[in-house]
Amino acid sequence: MCGRFSITMPSDEIAQLFEAIPDNNLPDVPNYNVCPTVDIHVVTGGSEAPRRLTAMRWGFVPGWYKKSNDGPLLINARAETIAEKPAFREAARQRRGLIVASGFYEWTKTPEGARAPWYIFARSGAPLVMAAVWQVWTGPDGAAQRTCAIVTTKANETTRHIHHRLPVLLEPAEWPLWLGEAGHGAARLMRPAPEDALQVHRVDHAVNSNRAVGADLIKPI
């Protein structure tokens, strides 16, 4: 899975990277400890729509939820079942997006049972672009909210010793297909990243707190 990540690129650079029109309500960056339920940067597009860089709540809310916390917090969607799960299947066909990150965190257990955090990032130093699905959810007050989930798949050899799941990571040539700009066939993109694509290092346990902030969170120890 992916339960936390960092984003250090300025919003205007993200918009330029994706050739997307930026909205005015984008979250503040940098953020070295992006947690579920906060607003994050998401790129949307489609065959008949220009790319937009917009803010969405990280935590997909299905249309039948009466409240945003009416059921499980859906921050990830499994690639293997995304086309079948009622919560995600329509979004997987019609509402796919891209989430950019500088890296993300996963945890292992120490022999003493403590949570040991790891930071996972691109070996090339480039930003990671994660596949996502999104949904507009209307609350009981009639207000519409855009919500999203990160699509995950099996881990590769580089990360399997840390966690058995990994976000679906997409290369620039794959973005149009995932966004629906280049026809059908996005399902074939939902596979583990190449073995040499990622690098990992241990980071300080300070990131175990969802209130922790600052660049020191991603420094190796």
Score class of each variant (00 low, 15 high):
P86S: 13
I99H: 01
Q94L: 14
W118R: 08
A116S: 13
R93H: 08
A116K: 15
R96T: 02
R78Y: 11
E80G: 04
V100P: 15
T110N: 03
F121H: 15
A79C: 08
T108D: 03
A92D: 10
I82H: 11
E106T: 01
F121L: 12
F121V: 06
T110Y: 01
A87Y: 04
W118S: 14
Q94D: 14
A77T: 05
A77D: 07
V100H: 00
P111C: 10
R93M: 12
A83R: 12
I99Y: 00
A92M: 15
A116G: 06
P117C: 13
V100Y: 00
R89F: 05
A101N: 04
R96F: 01
W118G: 09
R95L: 02
L98E: 02
G113S: 08
E112S: 14
E84N: 14
Y119D: 10
A77M: 09
T108F: 04
A114D: 15
L98Q: 00
F121Q: 14
T110R: 08
G113D: 09
Q94C: 11
V100F: 00
K85D: 05
R93T: 07
P86G: 10
E106L: 02
A116L: 15
E106P: 01
W107Q: 08
A91T: 11
A83H: 13
Y119K: 07
E90D: 15
